[in-house]
């Protein structure tokens, strides 16, 4: 367990190197460059947060929080603002204890998101994790739209050594889900992972299709726990918020998977989404290999983001 954690921390840190340097250096320059805590200081801070893709609304909230604290605690030095800022972001990113409860009961996990964010890859990675925990895993390939989508997922199923239910290209995704759910019940599967076609959240008919899939799962397998994960590309800007909102409307999102965090994107959108929708980030994708998926740890995340690890000892 601690090995896994270390791996995660290292990976995340490696992935976030550029991020961390950017944010830390600019944040430090703000902390050190200002003599007093004034409007200019706050403005500059807000801009830095915006630059990290945190989004103007969340940035403003964070600054507001900071201002309150500064006033209450009679803080005078800009440098002292740093810890407060980090703590407030950590607080916002906290994941509830029961966030992963679904992993230990019979669950149907529906994975949704816009095109190309990493849904299929995430399913492959999740399958591998659960399989290695000794669970009985089944994959449903309900992306019947994109060319070669099921071949892609079949390869992942092979890698993870789990079973897969597929449908023909162009067939009704709901019928694939129907088949898969019934197979899951018959085979006494622990976790059924459902891949879906990428869809832009502003396409009403495609979002309706998701609702239909949700209803089928509900109807066919009422006794199973329903987990709905929206996959968001870590490099996405403000639009990720709208994605999260719309997918939440359609399928009652229970968690977020933030992918491609091995890039230079700052992933600040995760903070924005937490603060606006209170949907926790549960997993983070840090590469294209089967092991490149980790549980999201807000402390590690924020620590890596601001690199305070050396101050801890």
């Amino acid at each position: 367990m601690s090995e896994e954690k270390l791996g995660f921390f290292e990976r995340l840190k490696n992935g976030l190197t550029k991020t961390r340097n950017n944010i830390v250096s600019s944040i430090d320059s703000v902390f050190n460059g200002f003599k007093t805590i004034d409007d200019d200081f706050y403005e500059e801070l807000e801009e830095i947060l915006v630059m990290g893709d945190i989004g103007i609304k969340a940035a403003e909230q964070i600054i507001m929080e900071l201002k309150k604290e500064v006033k209450q605690r009679h803080i005078k030095e800009p440098v002292d603002c740093r810890d407060i800022l980090i703590d407030s972001i950590k607080e916002q990113m906290k994941v509830n204890q029961d966030a992963y409860a679904f992993e230990n009961v019979t669950s149907v996990v529906l994975v949704v998101g816009v095109n190309g964010v990493g849904k299929t890859t995430t399913i492959g990675k999740l399958a591998s994790i659960y399989k290695s925990q000794g669970k009985k895993v089944l994959i449903a390939a309900a992306d019947t739209f994109r060319a070669a989508a099921s071949e892609q997922l079949e390869e992942w199923a092979k890698r993870a050594e789990v079973d897969i239910i597929t449908g023909k290209e162009g067939s009704d995704p709901a019928s694939v889900i129907f088949d898969a759910v019934n197979a899951a019940k018959a085979r006494k599967i622990d976790i059924l992972l459902c891949d879906t076609a990428g869809r832009l959240h502003n396409k009403k008919n495609l979002m309706e299709e998701l609702k239909k899939i949700g209803r089928i799962i509900e109807r066919e397998f009422p006794e199973a726990h329903k987990e709905s994960l929206v996959v968001l590309d870590g490099a996405t800007g403000q639009n990720a918020l709208m994605q999260a909102r719309e997918f939440k409307n359609a399928t009652d999102i229970t968690g977020i998977v933030l992918t491609k965090m091995d890039g230079t994107a700052k992933g600040g959108i995760a903070v924005a989404i937490q603060s606006e929708l209170q949907v926790p980030v549960k997993y983070i994708g840090v590469g294209e290999k089967i092991n490149d998926l980790q549980k999201f740890d807000p402390n590690d995340f924020v620590d890596a983001l601001f690199d305070r690890s050396h101050e801890k000892e």
């Binding site: 590309d233 490099a235 800007g237 639009n239 700052k266 959108i269």
Partner: peptide
């Protein structure tokens, strides 16, 4: 380039 890319677009 994905039109939804955020601040990182410049780095990419």
């Amino acid at each position: 380039v994905d039109a939804m890319t955020g601040q990182d677009a410049v780095n990419i």
